[in-house]
Write a protein that binds this DNA or RNA. Structure first.
Lengths: 138, 138
DNA sequence: TTGCGTGCAAAGGTTTTGCATGGCA
DNA sequence: TGCCATGCAAAACCTTTGCACGCAA
């Protein structure tokens, strides 16, 4: 899925190929920049951010804000993932980001819309809490 | 509910009194600083952050992360609010933060715990989406 | 040729930290 | 007195922006 408008450039193509090769995997802007800095064809930080912003605007990539001061995370959004049954949970203890596929949770969207007039964007929402592993450890 | 450890100081007392007088209202660190800068007894930025950090650690105040680059929000956490029936929705269009009291949504916590082994912290989670007003406007 | 994309550097904003001073117990 | 809290300034951090140059169409 190439961008819908604007020029087709090398930086854009390589970033998209990289993200697409790791669907569902979260990358920070710095990680993406470092990935390309390591090899040939480094890409400037500003370009990283500008392309990511474009990808997000076009719905190709999702952006997740996990905390103040922390970097935002970006992940390639597959068509299959794009349905409302994909959720994210972040463990406040170990920091792990957990992916959840759950049909039941889709009911939340209906409830929020019908009862609270709010069109929920599940893809951007992160559920905070404590994962099972961390609870066992105390 | 005074802090459990450390000294009892003027800055601490005034900040807590201010937050407590507005339960459930969200303030950024800058807003709190400006509030005290306006009157007598201004409080330094570093102290604002250090006290807020302490309040959050002690559970007196809740911290909300709404976006990268945006300031974090802090709100006094009443006992009554502390139950799981208080939720937050942020409109991605107008930026408004909507408070929601909904018994039905509490079922999410049970579901996440029983089916996904995840102890959800509803107080910290923000639901992103589009509010009714903004949808009407297109 | 036209104008968008890129890179560098600098700015922007929020939050944290170092260090000397002041206040609480 | 001993130790913590405070304030100022500077640093740290992520992200955005200005500007000149380069590349796509």
């Amino acid at each position: 899925m190439p961008p819908k408008s604007g020029y087709h450039t090398r930086a854009q193509e390589e970033m998209l190929a990289y993200l697409r090769s790791r669907p569902g995997v979260h990358h920070t802007a710095a990680e993406i920049r470092d990935h390309f800095s390591a090899g040939d064809n480094p890409i400037g930080t500003a370009t990283i951010y500008r392309q990511l912003e474009r990808f997000v605007a076009e719905g190709i990539v999702r952006k997740y804000v996990l905390g103040v001061g922390e970097s935002a995370c970006y992940a390639y959004a597959e068509q299959a993932e794009d349905c409302a049954s994909h959720f994210h949970c972040k463990c406040e203890a170990c920091g792990r980001l957990i992916h959840l596929d759950c049909e039941d949770l889709k009911a939340i969207r209906t409830h929020l819309l019908d009862h609270h007039d709010f069109a929920w964007n599940a893809g951007k929402t992160v559920f905070y809490g404590i994962c099972g592993d961390c609870r066992k450890k105390g």
